[in-house]
């Protein structure tokens, strides 16, 4: 789980240009995540872990923090 979180944080920082993203950072409120970087994150995760993420699952409830994203991914793997 930690490895997944670290990967997500790395990709969020790459896409946003913002350093120091935390597991509990509010990704939308803090404007770290937007639709383009969400697609990028989805693409990177799919490539890294060999899973498919339906776009209908890309909702705020699943992507609001790193912890939420990691939990969602763990359930899909």
């Amino acid at each position: 789980m930690n490895e997944i979180k670290q990967f997500i944080i790395e990709k969020l920082e790459e896409a946003s240009g913002i350093d120091g993203v935390k597991e509990e950072s509010l990704l939308f409120e803090e404007e770290i995540l937007d639709s383009l970087s969400i697609l990028y994150l989805v693409g990177e995760v799919e490539e890294q872990y060999g899973i498919q993420i339906p776009l209908e699952d890309v909702i705020e409830d699943n992507f609001c923090t790193v912890n939420h994203i990691a939990l969602y991914l763990k359930n899909r793997m």
Partner: peptide
């Protein structure tokens, strides 16, 4: 209707 990821804002 079902796809919600659509707000284009970027930081840099």
């Amino acid at each position: 209707k079902n796809v919600q990821a659509e707000f284009f804002t970027t930081n840099n």
